[in-house]
């Protein structure tokens, strides 16, 4: 089982790496999918593994996006250091807000995260002099990667860059969920009261994973900024947080790859359906959500696992 899993994983990443040949004209869209996948992976860590229900995760995506954008707009256009700085700032934002989020029930968490997300959105909206407000941040100029590889209009450099960064963070997340810490998170999701009774510092665990998740979300946001050379207010919007939830659920939560699958399905469907009619897209998105939950919230990957006979794990907070 394990060996087969490993082969599947290797195949997954090899196909992505072969993207330069397989979908050369779709590289910009593929980069967007990968970025959304990383964002969904960051969300999977807190929702799928730790059971934190949030509707404000776009806050950290936005912090990363604006950090990278502001750095690049003010002369610090070197991409890798900008990316790291953005990730660290998002991590800091996650760390600062984590005490508010980790305590409390699902409902309190839901409202706190929603509130924090809106707060940040409104902040960016009001600080138009710095962020560009509703017009978006202009003048983001990213220098060539390693001082040599320019971000070309076909998105080749961007795709390679995004894929490499996403892969590195994915590996870290993969280690995390397979470590004793990851096991503890699953324990906390299943039964936080018992975790306390066996001596677990539940809040500390949750704060740690929340911070790491915020960092990953921030890096995803920064990647979006660096590859599109623009930051719009929508990076912080409630809609982005809600879409994130949809992507993860569509793909399957608590399975590590669910975010990527969900992001791909969601964004490709969005790309083609909304060009037909945006209203049409929104309706079917909503109907799809209702249906997924009615049928059983395992997502595409959960379904695949069931077919392959892999033990499935329910995602999200216990009822």
């Amino acid at each position: 089982m394990r060996v087969r899993g490993l082969w599947l994983e290797a195949a997954f990443w090899l196909v992505l790496a072969a993207g330069f040949v397989l979908w050369p004209s779709r590289l910009p869209l593929a980069s967007q999918v990968l970025i959304a996948g990383l964002f969904a992976l960051s969300y999977d860590l807190i929702l799928g593994y730790a059971g934190i229900l949030s509707l404000g995760h776009a806050a950290y995506f936005g912090v990363g996006a604006y950090s990278a954008g502001l750095l690049a707009a003010h002369g610090w256009g070197e991409p890798i250091s900008g990316l790291i700085a953005a990730g660290l700032l998002a991590a800091l934002a996650g760390l600062i807000t984590s005490p508010l989020v980790v305590r409390g029930t699902d409902l309190t968490r839901l409202m706190i995260t929603t509130g924090l997300g809106l707060l940040l959105f409104e902040l960016a909206n009001r600080l138009g002099a710095i962020t560009g407000g509703v017009d978006g941040l202009q003048g983001v100029e990213v220098q060539p990667l390693f001082g040599a590889l320019r971000f070309d209009i076909y998105g080749r450099t961007a795709y390679g860059y995004v894929l490499a960064v996403v892969f590195v963070l994915f590996l870290a997340a993969r280690r995390l969920v397979r470590s004793p810490f990851g096991l503890s998170l699953r324990g906390i999701r299943g039964n936080p009261a018992r975790m306390r009774a066996i001596g677990c510092r539940v809040d500390l665990h949750l704060a740690a994973v929340y911070t790491f998740s915020a960092a990953c979300a921030g890096v995803a946001g920064a990647l979006l900024t660096q590859t599109t050379q623009f930051v719009g207010l929508d990076v912080l919007s409630f809609g982005r947080s809600a879409e994130l939830l949809v992507m993860l659920i569509v793909g399957g939560a608590g399975l590590l790859y669910g975010g990527f699958i969900g992001a791909a399905v969601f964004m490709i469907a969005h790309h083609y359906l909304s060009s037909l009619d945006p209203v049409y897209w929104q309706f079917w998105l909503g109907a799809g959500l209702v249906l997924i939950v009615l049928v059983g919230r395992d997502g595409i990957l959960g379904l695949g696992h069931r077919v392959l006979g892999v033990r499935r794990r329910r995602a999200g907070p216990a009822p």
Binding site: L47, L53, L55, D106, L107, L110, A242, L245, V246, I249, Q282, F283, L285, G286, A287, G288, L289, V290, I292, V293, L294, R297, A315, G316, P317, A318, P319
Partner: peptide, 17 residues
């Protein structure tokens, strides 16, 4: 009797619709 997550998902779906 379902989890809050399920309730959130269904009702957000309804909002979109």
């Amino acid at each position: 009797r379902r989890s809050h997550l399920d309730q959130v998902l269904v009702t957000i779906g309804l909002v979109f619709m």
